[in-house]
Design a protein around this nucleic acid. Structure first.
Lengths: 233, 233
DNA sequence: TGTGACATATAAGTCTGACTTTTTGTCGCT
DNA sequence: AGCGACAAAAAGTCAGACTTATATGTCACA
């Protein structure tokens, strides 16, 4: 997604970020800039830049005469895409995946309802195209191709909602869907009911039927929650 | 909220951040580190740290031989609390307030439903206390006191949901509520219906009645949307 | 006239060392 | 025990020199 390790400070972040978000340094742990600079074999300037970025994510706090202290998890900027990626890549993955799926279940139905009101003709076309692509790859071990269309589908819905906050969740949803397909419990072929629901959403959006688009998307969300045993089946 | 201007690089951010998020530099604009360092009368090291932070927010992109280019709005990390504050403080305020209110309307009902299932006894007590505080200050020009309890109420609900992503929206909701009271259209006294709804939510959460908590919160959300003319009355 | 290789200028990136500032812990005095 | 002065520690700041990547212009050749 984002270019990894761009520059020396990026390389440092690629190591320190995952370590912190994985809880390797408990809250209150103290790091010292000079020591870190030595450990990563970079200059203090580079290390300081890395610390500034971690600080802007509220992962750490830098105080004079004390050092760089790790903040409690409750203060982290958990919506930062970088933080989300780090957590998804580490031991926190299952927990993060659940949090995000609950978030999706709240957002996407509303987004679909708004999309039904605001989607352009072009977006409607994209949507049906995505739905068709899902149908076409819903049988016969074509999970990867299915995934591409699934991701595109949800991204279009979020974008078409016309709300910038929703739109920016496209990347997050993509990570969740990809994660589910590649690492979590995903049956050999996707649930046919889910595929049908996606087609229905595309139709509802095209027809401008907001309540129906919202309701169908809510059912998709229920399915996603059930997959992770968040909701009783 | 967050300590402003902590250190020189913080002061630079306090000026550059609002300027960029206000659209003063159109997407693609090129800034040069050295020039900025001169303008703000800081060393290049400090300026570089500031740029790194802006880069981590996806507000700018730094490339060799080119400079620091401003990214299009669609790529910004719009969930970054700092970015939200900057936008709320600038000309983008009304638009940002609308986006956030729509976000709230999607999240909070679900959060309330979850809170009804997961809230501790202590959280239930806090909630009723907040609701009572709202009732007590709902008449007679006590908007500021009312606001305090209103903010606390929504923060408790979001926290009690047990979802970390929801919980972290507490600050955002606080900003929206404060913004509505202080700058936007807010009648002399809060809508009595809204107050009643809050009391109802507190009761529903205490009773563990998730559907009711969700539905009542949804009605609160509808009210908030109507206030901003997002929803037809 | 167009195209490819090459040279050059430019701005970010990096490193180092010296200095400043703030904060905290400690020690001695009352 | 309380209080104030002092010293140490770590981040913060700055200046300057050097490195590296790369966009762009130039020139020879087809």
């Amino acid at each position: 997604m984002t270019t990894p390790g761009r520059g020396l400070h990026g390389h440092v972040l690629d190591t320190l970020g995952p370590a912190i978000t994985a809880g390797e340094y408990p809250p209150g742990s103290v790091l010292r800039t000079d020591e870190l600079a030595q450990r990563f074999e970079v200059s203090r300037s580079v290390m300081r830049e890395a610390v500034r970025v971690l600080e802007s994510m509220h992962l750490v706090e830098s105080r004079r005469r004390v050092g760089v202290t790790v903040r409690p998890k409750a203060e982290w900027n958990v919506y930062d895409p970088q933080v989300i990626r780090w957590r998804l890549a580490g031991a926190d993955r299952p927990h993060q995946l659940r949090s995000l799926t609950v978030l999706r279940s709240a957002i996407e139905p509303v987004a679909a309802g708004l999309a039904a009101q605001h989607a352009t003709a072009e977006q409607c076309a994209e949507l049906t195209e995505c739905a068709l692509g899902m149908v076409a790859n819903s049988r016969g071990h074509k999970l990867d191709k299915y995934l591409v269309h699934d991701i595109a589908f949800h991204r279009v819905v979020l974008t078409a909602s016309g709300n910038e906050m929703f739109a920016r969740l496209g990347d997050v949803v993509a990570e969740v869907l990809a994660g589910r397909t590649h690492h979590e419990v995903m049956f050999e072929d996707p649930d046919p009911a889910a595929v049908t629901l996606h087609v229905g959403v595309a139709e509802a959006v095209r027809a401008g039927d907001a309540p129906r688009a919202e309701e169908l998307t809510r059912q998709i969300a229920v399915g996603a929650l059930q997959e992770l045993d968040i909701l009783a089946p």
